[in-house]
Nucleic acid binder design. Structure first.
Length: 330
DNA sequence: AAAATTCGCAACCGCACCATG
DNA sequence: ACATGGTGCGGTTGCGAATTT
């Protein structure tokens, strides 16, 4: 049975005045926590004390460390605010909840991450991202296509440009968390352009490696290692999170990825670029780049398999290979 | 400058559970 | 067994401030 409480009793409601606060503090100092019934509903008094008047409360804006803790614990516990708050001395569940809803949530979405699952937003969730960025990505059309060709690439042909597909560059926190921006390749003789490798430190401060592609023309060529099948390069990107795709963007993110400077030492042997894949097939299920050449897939990608936690392992396997190759190429 | 909109956050609500008389 | 009150929790609301139009 619910409480009649404030709604049906003639007690004061709304914001607390300094006088009321003082009265409550005096009352608790003199009588302890036992009786909460004053001129307001007991529940209201208790809440005011716990969330605002308690002397051991830590007020003010959340630190980066606190934010990191909230995200980390939320990832494990979900919306158990009271449990999360226990990891933050002096913070209340209400405060943590408010901070999550007003701040962290938006940052995660801005990075293309689902704040509920902490995975990448699926194509069906792209509207959320669109809304945030105030732009439209058509998730119903093919991602992009790559034509078959052979080419070589030297590092001299690289042109690196800063590119942050899902980050608010005006947000100092996010910008600072990037340890490397995306890389955009432009090379006339290779006939590919605007491919972006995204290396970033996400709001969880966990190194994340991923890739995405934007503004890709149908003739875009994406070079990929010819020697992938030899498994000479360890697939050590860590846990693969959910891939996502939209009309002009394709992405996959790996948690606990190596930082570039560390990974550079691992590079072996010299990278050869000689194999291209048809990206549409890459997106389609069943493509196997390890077999060499382009494998045509007859099936269309089932976008629903990317929803929620239903991760398409096969797709991720391919994505991991591809990302690994791109990592090395770049 | 004023109106409209968005944002942050304190406070409230509803529910569950427990203790007590 | 039941009523009442206390506690705890997560979701939601409403208001003042800030920002945008």
């Amino acid at each position: 049975m619910g409480h009649h409480c404030c709604s049906k009793q003639k007690v004061k409601r709304g914001l607390w005045s300094p006088e009321e606060d003082e009265k409550l503090i005096k009352h608790i100092t003199n009588h302890g926590h036992g009786c909460w019934r004053l001129q307001r509903c007991g529940k209201s008094c208790r809440l005011r004390w716990i969330n605002y008047l308690r002397p051991d409360l830590r007020r003010g804006s959340f630190t980066e460390h606190e934010e990191r803790t909230i995200i980390d614990v939320h990832r494990i516990l979900g919306n158990r605010w009271a449990q999360i708050a226990k990891h933050l001395p002096g913070r209340t569940d209400n405060e943590v909840k408010n901070f999550w809803n007003s701040c962290i949530k938006k940052k995660l979405i801005a990075q293309g991450l689902d704040p509920n699952t902490h995975n990448l937003l699926s194509p069906h969730q792209i509207p959320i991202l669109n809304a945030y960025h105030n732009k439209t990505i058509d998730s119903t059309k093919p991602v992009f296509s790559i034509i078959n060709t052979s080419s070589t690439q030297t590092k001299d042909t690289k042109k690196v440009q800063a590119f942050r597909p899902h980050l608010d560059t005006n947000d100092p926190l996010m910008t600072n968390n990037l340890y490397e921006n995306s890389i955009t390749h432009q090379s006339s003789n290779l006939n590919y352009q605007d491919y972006n490798l995204v290396l970033k430190d996400d709001v969880r401060h966990q190194p994340t490696m991923g890739f995405s592609s934007q503004h890709l023309a149908e003739s875009t060529i994406m070079p990929i290692l010819s020697s992938l099948s030899s498994s000479s390069i360890p697939l050590d990107f860590g846990t693969v999170l959910q891939p996502w795709a939209a009309n002009n963007e394709l992405g996959v993110v790996f948690e606990h990825a190596r930082r570039p400077e560390v990974h550079q030492e691992m590079l072996q042997p010299p990278i050869l670029v000689g194999q291209e894949v048809v990206a549409q097939d890459f997106v389609n299920k069943g493509m196997d780049v390890r077999d060499g050449g382009v494998v045509q897939s007859q099936t269309n990608m089932d976008m629903s398999s990317f929803d929620g936690c239903n991760i398409d392992l096969e797709f991720m396997d391919q994505a991991a290979l591809m990302a690994n190759a791109l990592w090395n190429v770049f």
